[in-house]
């Protein structure tokens, strides 16, 4: 089982770099690929905040939405990953320990 999973998780990561590196991508494809990162991050952020338990939960009971607000503000203001991470984690810890949801 472990080797099967290892194989299917390894191939999609390695093959594109291994096979495509010798080719020059066409401009439109390059442009399309340049939007993959913002799209992926948009998806990951949305899922991790609005569906933290694996299902969409847009309600006042979702702690992740509350923690999202100060975290976003700090990210925009400081542009510092460490400051953002710190505020995010501290806010979440406070919400868990002191606020009844």
């Amino acid at each position: 089982m472990i080797f099967g999973v290892a194989l299917v998780s390894m191939l999609p990561r390695i093959l594109p770099v291994a096979l495509f590196s010798r080719y020059e991508f066409a401009e439109p494809l390059k442009k399309w690929l340049s939007y993959v990162a913002p799209a992926v991050l948009g998806s990951l952020t949305a899922l991790s905040v609005l569906a933290p338990e694996g299902f969409v939960d847009i309600s006042i009971h979702n702690r992740f939405i509350w923690a999202f607000i100060p975290t976003l503000v700090i990210a925009i203001k400081t542009k510092s990953l460490f400051a953002t991470l710190f505020i995010g984690i501290v806010t979440m810890a406070l919400l868990y320990n002191f606020v009844q949801f």
Binding site: T71, T84, I89, M92
Partner: peptide, 16 residues
């Protein structure tokens, strides 16, 4: 410990 928000916070910041 609030560590459950480490990855979401990272995504938020990298998205910005």
């Amino acid at each position: 410990l609030g560590l459950g928000f480490a990855l979401p916070a990272m995504y938020i910041c990298l998205l910005v």
